[in-house]
């Protein structure tokens, strides 16, 4: 494979695969909790966070991590305490983030180019530092999910019984929200805010088509996610197309194939 002899391609491959694994692990919980759109909402909020960072000349990753984490916890708490539907809470928070972002961006028009790079990401321009940051964040997510795997599965399947089994449901929900916030911020540099939602949803949705158990579904999602990054980078290199777009389209193809596979399997077992 000649293309991965370039350092920038190696960094792209590793940061992309790490991000996609984090997304796949979180995505399955988010989808089953009907929270698939939280990534979408948080990415809008991250946009506001980036604008704040650029405006005050602070590292945008830091400001957006702060803003997004607070918003993610806010969404969980509002749902819990005020009985607002989760998607409504997401809608409210993301609109505020987007509105703030637009206003701050227009107040100082000079950083519009920078802002664009966060919207669309640039996986081929990942620095070594950013690669190390992604490694650290992905490891955090990976270890958290492994340690709390069964509890997260329990609160996702049946929160009430989980609570009556002494599980700390609200703390675990906050953990999930924070991990998602971290992932969104991690993803904005790599695939961009507009596409990080896709990585949170599509590989896991693909795994859900055929997984027979939770563990199997999780592994399948991770496989789909990392294969999409790998193939997406190859297509982008040789076809000279944007990497993030290629990655997401390939993930979608995986989803479509597994979906068709499931449908055909049902049909076949009905007629045969």
């Amino acid at each position: 494979m000649g293309i991965f002899s370039y350092h920038f391609m190696q960094r792209a491959l590793w940061s992309g695969i790490l991000l996609s694994i984090a997304c796949a692990m979180l995505g399955i919980f988010l989808i089953l909790r009907r929270e698939a759109m939280i990534g979408h909402g948080l990415s809008h909020i991250a946009f506001g966070g980036v604008a704040i960072g650029l405006f005050f000349h602070v590292l945008p990753m830091v400001t957006s991590l702060l803003v997004v984490s607070v918003a993610a916890l806010g969404i969980v708490k509002i749902k819990e305490k005020a009985g607002v539907y989760e998607d409504t809470a997401i809608g409210i928070f993301s609109s505020i983030g987007m509105a703030a972002g637009i206003i701050i961006a227009s107040l100082a028009g000079s950083f519009n180019v920078d802002l664009m790079s966060y919207l669309f990401g640039n996986i081929l321009a990942i620095s070594s530092l950013e690669l190390w940051i992604s490694l650290a964040l992905t490891m955090t997510i990976f270890i958290s999910i492994v340690l709390f795997y069964r509890e997260l599965m329990f609160i996702t399947f049946d929160p009430e019984s989980a609570k009556a089994s002494g599980m700390k449901v609200s703390r675990l929900e906050s953990l999930l929200a924070i991990l998602t916030a971290v992932t969104v911020v991690l993803g904005m540099k790599i695939v961009g805010l507009l596409l990080v939602t896709a990585l949170l949803v599509i590989p896991s949705a693909a795994g859900l088509q055929v997984g027979k158990s939770f563990g199997q579904t999780l592994l399948l999602s991770i496989l789909v996610a990392s294969l999409s990054v790998f193939l997406g980078l190859i297509f982008s290199f040789y076809g000279n197309i944007p990497a993030s777009g290629a990655i997401i389209l390939i993930a979608s193809l995986f989803f479509l194939s597994l979906f068709l596979f499931r449908i055909l399997k049902i049909k076949y077992s009905l007629s045969g």
Binding site: L32, R150, M153, D158, S161, G166, K212, S213, F214, G215
Partner: peptide, 15 residues
């Protein structure tokens, strides 16, 4: 929901 019977019963053991 992609959980096997084994995984569901295992939830009961967590406490």
């Amino acid at each position: 929901f992609p959980a096997s019977v084994l995984e569901i019963v295992a939830m009961g053991l967590l406490s």
